[in-house]
Write a protein that binds this DNA or RNA. Structure first.
Lengths: 350, 350
DNA sequence: TTCTTGAATTGGAACGTTCCAATAAACCAG
DNA sequence: CTGGTTTATTGGAACGTTCCAATTCAAGAA
């Protein structure tokens, strides 16, 4: 039993020193492992610390040498499993490196975002990984760059901000999945979901357009619909598209979540997804696998992105002079049932 | 433009004082808002801070008055959306109260758990919310109680640990959903998934047994199967149950995840879930809603539990002398399609 | 023995803040 | 004006650690 329970007094390095009959400097040496200490003494000190229930005060230590080993992680939407997985990756790498992470969820609010970033700075975070809330402007980050804090922007690129980025290959991924639909013979392909102001939407839609153009397909502006990036948004957009006279035969969605909403709408209209119409998503969330029919989508490995982001940030913290650097994570096609490739193959075989 | 960029020197309260022509004590007063300061002076100081790009050093402040406004959140499995939502609730309340949260994911490893809890303590966390990893023993928490750190255990009860708990109403919830199946006329009901050593399994299975007993139903031990709490686990357990000579007509699953695995297995065996067999889950994760047929389950409001946990912890931090307290969150039946109630109603109407 | 050298240990000054006691300034009643 | 009271301001000592320069120790070489 260390310490009679209820004793509020925190035990310090000095009390350890007194109890062990050495000086506080010696205790500090064994604590940091820096100087050379006779092994008897070390053992003595360690066991005194154990006996008195000592806990190291990093705050005090940081005051002196300013190497906090804390970084902050700011997420725009933790309820999205994609960001949860991203967080897992970040946290894993940080933990291995002996860092500890502040975490905050901004729920797309820039004012919350600003608050938590300031808080984390004040609490001594040496670096920040930011998944920016929807209408974050590069100016919002100026103060971070002014202070000696490393900064990395993830998932959503922030155009105009000269900071390191870790983002998925949105353009190429969208091109890839669009090409897949084109190869399956589709002519009229719609693009659904996401708001025009979102950078990720711009990138993915750009990839879609590029693939269409490269294949000589015409793009009907009536088949480009915005929506909130939610299931309901997807449902609404898809319903709108299906009420058109000249329906598309395939639909590329901004997102898996949107795609699932779209699938619901298609089913409601009596269409069998994968046979009567092709619907594809982006992200490969775990839902994509379990929905029925299983969703063809683009996998972006959020855990891997998180690991990469953390590693890059740590590098920047260690050497603050390095130039901002970007990592573009792979985005690979995952063919399942909702695109109809499977149906097609069955028909060919039968 | 505050500070010529690249200047590594952090600006302190003293430099502000010098620049504003007052003493550091005065600056401290305007910072904390404690004493009375002439409004001219205050304005002067504030604007100097702004000009020099000052950032408050809470570490230094805490060294003196020891009120860190940091708490730690330790999750056993962040990849489970249930815990992600729990985290959202916790973080929201903390943020409102001006606290900032350390977050760590232990991935069910007790050694990682111990590491991160120590780290958080050393970094000055004044309280800890722990969702314990699978084989956490109450002894593991003794050192926290010895230190002056508030502690709260959430989601998984830790029998024998005298700490505050915030957990869902597992027993009553399981009873409720079992009773629902009984009312639908089922006689042979199986219980599937989760390992016997898991407290949550014990509680939910206990609720199941209680409802069966109360209704005078006999419980066949062959219809009680353990499995890992994963989709694959559910699939395996369900397959085993279906290979029995005397199959159950309904299945209560440990978990939504297990239930979804079980549904897959049933489908594989040519059964239509909701018509040929009833399958129900627990938790009401977002997947439960989207799987087809939609899963009948028990909703436990993870965000609400998180908010409650945070609020309770803050209370304990403010007054460390309060006795450990427990909150049992409601667990309500959510009737969808997989239990067959809908089918039943249709048949009656037709 | 005495010297030399490297290893082991140590006191004290910092780090950036808060708090206390003390001082200075401002106000107001007589 | 003077004395008393309230309001503003201030220097210095803490908080728990690290680091530096200085000291002591142990042991082998001369």
């Amino acid at each position: 039993m260390p310490q009679p329970k209820g004793s509020k007094e925190k035990v310090t390095i000095i009390e350890i020193a007194d109890a062990a009959g050495v000086s506080k400097s010696t205790v500090s040496l064994v604590l940091t492992g820096r100087g050379s200490v006779k092994s008897d003494t070390r053992r003595q000190v360690l066991q005194t610390m154990d006996r008195l229930g000592y806990v190291y005060n990093r705050g005090a230590a940081n005051l002196r040498n300013a190497q906090s080993r804390i970084v902050g992680l700011i997420l725009n939407d933790l309820s999205n499993p994609f960001f949860a997985e991203f967080a897992i990756g970040v946290e894993k790498v940080l933990q291995m490196a002996g860092y500890v992470a502040f975490m905050a969820n901004t729920a797309e609010s820039v004012v919350r975002q600003d608050q938590v970033m300031r808080m984390m700075r004040e609490h001594g975070a040496g670096g920040l990984i930011l998944c920016p809330a929807l209408d974050t402007r590069p100016e919002h980050l100026d103060w971070v760059r002014a202070a000696d804090t490393a900064l990395l922007v993830a998932i959503r690129r922030l155009p105009g901000a000269e900071v390191s980025h870790v983002v998925p290959e949105n353009v190429a991924g969208a091109s890839r999945i669009t090409r897949h639909l084109i190869n399956l013979g589709h002519e009229r392909i719609a693009y659904l979901g996401g708001m025009h102001s979102m950078v990720v939407r711009q990138e993915r839609h750009g990839g879609f357009l590029a693939a269409m153009e490269a294949a000589g397909r015409s793009v009907d502006p009536a088949l480009n619909l915005e929506s909130m990036p939610t299931r309901d948004g997807g449902f609404g957009a898809m319903s709108a598209v299906l009420s058109l006279g000249d329906r598309p035969t395939a639909v590329v969605c901004y997102n898996d979540v949107v795609a699932i909403g779209a699938m619901l709408a298609a089913a409601r209209h009596g269409l069998v997804v994968g046979r009567d119409i092709a619907i594809v998503g982006f992200d490969d969330t775990s839902e994509a696998r379990h929905v029925s029919p299983a969703l063809t989508t683009v996998a972006v490995d959020p855990v891997g992105l998180g690991e990469r982001a953390a590693a890059l940030l740590l590098k920047q913290i260690k050497d603050p002079t390095v130039e901002p650097e970007s990592f573009i994570g792979p985005a690979n096609l995952v063919i399942r049932e909702s695109c109809g490739a499977y149906h097609r193959a069955l028909a060919a075989a039968g």
